[in-house]
């Protein structure tokens, strides 16, 4: 049974992660335009949040963006590690999320066969 009282217990955890989340800088960005949502962006974002919680990767930030014009490749998911190129993955399904997080977010190895875009870090 969930209740608002759970928030007391969560508060300390959230507070201690606050600084970590500001400093880490690794970001996962999901396309949440109409095209993204219709293609399954909600499920992909939920899968990302679940996977981050499961792996205790609470320093990774999840963000959203609107349509960037590659609607046919939605769901689009970008991984941006500090100092590295911004990688855009396309046609992402919830079941791809753990692979992207394990290989790229954690270990820095790009999942090449899913990449649809790359913006070099300047």
């Amino acid at each position: 049974m969930k209740s608002l009282a759970d928030l007391h217990a969560l508060r300390d955890k959230l507070k201690s992660d606050l600084k970590l989340r500001k400093e880490s800088g690794t970001k996962i960005i999901i396309g949440m335009g109409t095209c993204g949502i219709a293609a399954g962006a909600r499920e992909v974002m939920a899968a990302v949040l679940d996977e981050l919680a499961r792996r205790h990767l609470t320093d990774v930030q999840v963000q959203q963006t609107g349509c960037i014009g590659m609607c046919d490749k939605e769901v689009l998911l970008d991984v941006l590690r500090p100092g590295e190129a911004r990688i855009t993955y396309g046609n992402v399904k919830p079941e791809d999320v753990s692979k992207i997080i394990a290989n790229h977010v954690v270990n820095g190895n790009i999942v090449e066969d899913m990449v649809v875009g790359k913006i070099e870090n300047k």
């Binding site: 608002l4 928030l7 969560l10 508060r11 300390d12 955890k13 959230l14 507070k15 992660d17 606050l18 989340r21 949040l49 679940d50 981050l52 919680a53 990767l57 609470t58 930030q61 999840v62 963000q63």
Partner: peptide
Amino acid sequence: ELGEACDFSHPE
């Protein structure tokens, strides 16, 4: 309730 610790993008 959570004050400055409130972060709805936190997975938990």
